[in-house]
């Protein structure tokens, strides 16, 4: 994979220097900082709303650290995954359309190296952003609610990370296989919806990445969840998507 290191360096530098920094990392940091505060403020917000509506009585249990973590995980499962899909849709297609891929690939940078750098940088950014967001969430939750359910939360985050990593590689593949960013994003969202639907079918849920989507609640509460098979299929699919991305990109003319 000639040129991989130099191109990976460019990818990481691009994240620091462009809007990419404010996409996934920005979202995760924002969620980490605000979700626990919002969880704590929810009863007060509901109470204020109820006061404006005569006759409406709202009873809301006192929020806990578990609520803060559950809300954070809920946001990861929806908002953050959609951010992964949308930002990932242009990683290869965008470079093809801008002509930058042509200027890079006429040098000793192989197409496999190009794709590998895209996948590795995407995974590295995901890892750092998730670690930062989760750490901030724990820190703010500690301040607001005190220490509890941290182990369950960390496990939940790690499981989500595996699922998000799958979507990073999926988007590298879709972006390499399709000529435009929008269809790649659309296909990514379709896969997301399909996985969500599969969570309702135990047979599929227990054998596919859909199992990771459905495990949050149990993991947060410290209950056992059988995730070995879903994790294995997630890892296998992630590798498959990278290989497929290389094959698809090799067929493309620039």
């Amino acid at each position: 994979m000639s040129g991989f290191r130099a191109f990976l360096r460019k990818e990481l530098r691009e994240t620091r220097r462009t809007w990419r920094l404010w996409a996934l990392p920005g979202i995760l940091v924002f969620l980490g900082l605000t979700t626990p505060i919002l969880a704590a403020a929810t009863p007060y917000l509901l109470k204020m709303t109820a006061q404006r509506t005569p006759g409406l009585v709202v009873t809301y249990p006192t929020p806990t650290a578990l609520d803060a973590y559950a809300q954070f995980m809920g946001n990861l499962a929806q908002l953050a995954l959609l951010a992964v899909i949308v930002t990932g849709a242009g990683v290869v297609a965008g470079e093809r359309r801008a002509g930058t891929a042509a200027l890079m690939l006429c040098k000793p940078l192989s197409r496999a190296g190009f794709i590998a750098a895209k996948a590795v940088s995407g995974l590295a950014i995901l890892l750092v952003a998730t670690a930062l967001g989760a750490a901030l969430c724990i820190l703010v939750t500690l301040v607001v609610f005190g220490a509890s359910h941290i182990a369950g939360f960390v496990t939940s985050v790690l499981v989500w990370l595996a699922l998000a990593a799958l979507f990073v590689t999926l988007m590298v593949f879709l972006s390499a296989a399709m000529d435009r960013q929008a269809p790649a994003a659309g296909a990514g969202i379709a896969v997301y919806v399909a996985l969500f639907v599969l969570t309702g079918f135990p047979l599929a849920r227990d054998r596919t990445p859909a199992g990771l989507m459905a495990a949050n609640d149990a993991l947060l509460k410290g209950r056992h969840a059988s995730l070995a098979v879903p994790l294995a299929t997630t890892l296998a699919l992630a590798v498959l998507f990278v290989v497929a991305a290389v094959v698809a990109f090799r067929r493309k003319e620039l």
Binding site: A6, K10, T100, A102, L103, L109
Partner: peptide, 23 residues
């Protein structure tokens, strides 16, 4: 190429640096 595509966020020095490192 006829219409060269550059990374808009880079300076000329940075682009040449990237090109040279690829070689």
């Amino acid at each position: 190429p006829d219409v060269p595509g550059f990374y808009k966020w880079m300076t000329a020095d940075e682009f040449l640096d990237l090109a040279g490192r690829l070689f």
